[in-house]
Structure formats: structure tokens, C-alpha cells
């Protein structure tokens, strides 16, 4: 059973401006440490990278149907050799997921995320499914 779906669109120049104005401070405020550690080395790629990760966070909050959970508890990782991103929820976002799926632990939950970008825009879609019900 699908427990939530969400989409978000981000204007990449917003992140370009944010980074040039506030630098690492705003990135450290908004992003999970693993996202920061895996940022692209090329500076001109970083706005696109963080914009698409931000889209994932917003899309996830829409799928969870609740804001105000903070942005660090939702993040994507990639495993070596696999280009598909993996959505990770912890803390407040994980609690909310268990609440809407009505489960004690998240072993039956499948989290799907898809990211795309073109020129000035990044988009992400998140789908949350409980495979037991």
C-alpha cells in the first residue's frame, strides 16, 4: 500500500546565491553530514547538487504530509557502483513515517526517490510504500 507521494521543484540559482552569500554556514545548517561529505569537488556543480538534495527533502516532507521536522533527518546516499540514490530517514522523519504507515519498525517500508535536473531546475519525486499491507 502506498503511504505517501511527494514532488518538489527547486530553482538552482537560489542555491548558487545562497552559497555565494552564506557559504558553508548555510550548507552545514541545512544538509546531513553525509551529503556534505559527498558533494562534488567542482564548485560549479555544487549548487545543482545541493538544490536536488533540497528537492528530495521537500518532496519527502510532502510524502510524509508534515513539515517542521527539520532538514537533516532526510537525506540521500549512493552506494558504490550503483547510480540510484537511496533515501534515508532518521529521527523525526522516521517517526512520522512509522506513524503514517502504522508500523512499529520500518522493515516493511520501501522508499523510492528519483531526481532530475535540467539547466536551472532540479526536481525530485519520493514514493513511500508499505509492502505488508
Amino acid at each position: 500500500m502506498i503511504v505517501g507521494i511527494g514532488t518538489d521543484l527547486v530553482h538552482i540559482p537560489r542555491f548558487r546565491n545562497l552559497i555565494s552569500k552564506h557559504g558553508d554556514k548555510i550548507i552545514n545548517r541545512l544538509f546531513h553530514i553525509s551529503e556534505i561529505n559527498n558533494k562534488p569537488l567542482m564548485e560549479e556543480k555544487q549548487a545543482q547538487y545541493f538544490a536536488s538534495r533540497w528537492a528530495v527533502k521537500e518532496a519527502t516532507l510532502k510524502a510524509l504530509g508534515k513539515g517542521g521536522l527539520g532538514s537533516k533527518c532526510i537525506y540521500v546516499t549512493k552506494t558504490n557502483g550503483n547510480p540510484s540514490p537511496i533515501l534515508c530517514l532518521e529521527g523525526a522523519s522516521l517517526e512520522r513515517l512509522k506513524e503514517i504507515a502504522n508500523v512499529q519498525d520500518d522493515t516493511s517500508i520501501r522508499k523510492y526517490v528519483s531526481i532530475s535536473h535540467d539547466k536551472d531546475y532540479a526536481v525530485a519525486t519520493v514514493l513511500l510504500e508499505n509492502v505488508k499491507n
Binding site: R14, L18, K21, H22, N28, R29, L30, E58, G70, S71
Partner: peptide, 25 residues
């Protein structure tokens, strides 16, 4: 939420404060 994060950061700068991340949002 992105605008709000930036405004809160401007408030920090104005008052020379470091608001913890878990408080800022």
C-alpha cells in the same frame, strides 16, 4: 523553508549569535 532558513541566518548575523541547527528550524 529555504527563505526562512536564510532570514534566520541573517538574524544570527545581526545579533552575532550562533543558533543551534536543531533550534533554528
Amino acid at each position: 523553508s529555504l527563505d526562512t532558513a536564510e532570514v534566520v541566518m541573517e538574524v544570527e548575523n545581526e545579533f552575532q549569535l550562533e543558533i543551534p541547527d536543531e533550534e533554528a528550524f
